[in-house]
Design a protein around this nucleic acid. Sequence first.
DNA 1: GCCAGAAGTATTACATAGTAATACGAAGGC
DNA 2: GCCTTCGTATTACTATGTAATACTTCTGGC
Lengths: 261, 261
Amino acid sequence: MDDRTKTKQNTLYVASLAKGLRLLRTFDETHSELSLAELAARSGLDKSAAQRLANTLHLEGMLDKDATTRRYRPSHAWLEMAYAYYWSDPLVAQAMPKLIELSQQIGETVNLAELSGDHIIYVTRLPCKRSSFAATVVGRRVPALLTTSGRAILSSFPAEERAAALRNWPVRGYTPHTTVDRGELFQAVETALTDGYAIAHNQLLPNETAVACPVLSPEGRAFSAVQVSVSSLQWSEARIKAEILPVLQDTAHGLMGKMKR
Amino acid sequence: MDDRTKTKQNTLYVASLAKGLRLLRTFDETHSELSLAELAARSGLDKSAAQRLANTLHLEGMLDKDATTRRYRPSHAWLEMAYAYYWSDPLVAQAMPKLIELSQQIGETVNLAELSGDHIIYVTRLPCKRSSFAATVVGRRVPALLTTSGRAILSSFPAEERAAALRNWPVRGYTPHTTVDRGELFQAVETALTDGYAIAHNQLLPNETAVACPVLSPEGRAFSAVQVSVSSLQWSEARIKAEILPVLQDTAHGLMGKMKR
DNA sequence: GCCAGAAGTATTACATAGTAATACGAAGGC
DNA sequence: GCCTTCGTATTACTATGTAATACTTCTGGC
């Protein structure tokens, strides 16, 4: 990603393709249907480029186009890509049955999260209760430090890496109670390290409590975590520790050494 | 997709981008991790093209590359695309809470399927029982005629379209009991039309029974369906009709007019 | 332990394929 | 009914992507 890696003079970098991808990435939760003009504006490409590339994406079935409004939308192919991803991630195949079992046992929402740079991404979700839409669909990326999964994963890292992450990884408030103080975050990760799991309240949603256990590799390093979300109105921390934690830990331990990296 | 739409002389078609996408589509359930050579062979591109394009996709974060084996794999970005898709499909946001409620009520697996050409694609899945991996993850495409969802959707189409679909849409056996006879399929769709739902056994998996209700637009045409899968060993057809069907129909009716097309 | 073959990586000369600019047409608001 | 905005189409130009080739690293067979 340095000077000469992308941009011109690198004959192994195809700018047209990169621009096309840029167009795809222009769609997000708040911009799910874009006109050609919006596409151009948001992607930073000029009108001509946006036109050619969007047209190509449309012809190739990557973008649907409303015949009357002429606006572009992600096509079903975007879901097919998730399907292909799942087959490429050995952890998911291993985890799925165990996660289903877990969610049936406790009757609460179960997620599988993986570390993706300094964020975590929800790879699998088994919602059991109504929740915000964002919390029910896969593929959401959230700054790792804000999530119990991220903290559980990070707690498995060597001390210097933990420190570096706590210094540099991004943080932002989702609720009024999101922990954004890096001192407090440090404490949370240390606690996760000694306990073997992380727990927190109201980090991404009000009245939500999350617990997460890291999925450790044989070398003791985690890249993913199994996480349970419950209503803090219905679940005291004590009850969570008594009724959820043991089975959650069993599930996570059962996945040891199944991850890809 | 005709002669002059793609290929040369169409200045609005960017072949490099299309080739890059071709590379992405090379990954599927049985080919989830590919070397450069395999990528070239399977995509039909020559070594040079595969090299340049794969490299670009890697630099842009669309493909992960194993540092030691040098093999490419779908990256987390593929899941993010699913996330973006979900926000673009109004039906999903409407459906999600109702589907969760349904799955909790009946304690069985609930799916939301949408028509995608002559296939259906599973847009949302709420697995409650262990099942085959393919049946637990979103984004799977299956020939519409083989699924109760597809038949339920098709039953809402005008007679000529139904006939055309029954003639032309693809069919292939997944289990020894998959209905591949177009006469029988015709019957199944007619029955779905009179009943308002479709039911079938052992179509995609042995010992699986599926029921699906179409999600009708105000004009009475469906593009999606809510579907429940159960073990045929545990559920008689009578019990399904008594205990599942009513709530399933409620759910589907509650979604009327929420789809995108 | 060396050789052969294959697979990945890098370089180059060339012209095709992608580009930016521009012009046209249609839709919608004031 | 005019003017702006957006989508679509065309064109002349050359920068950009290309195929061919050569170099490097790795693997396995004998």
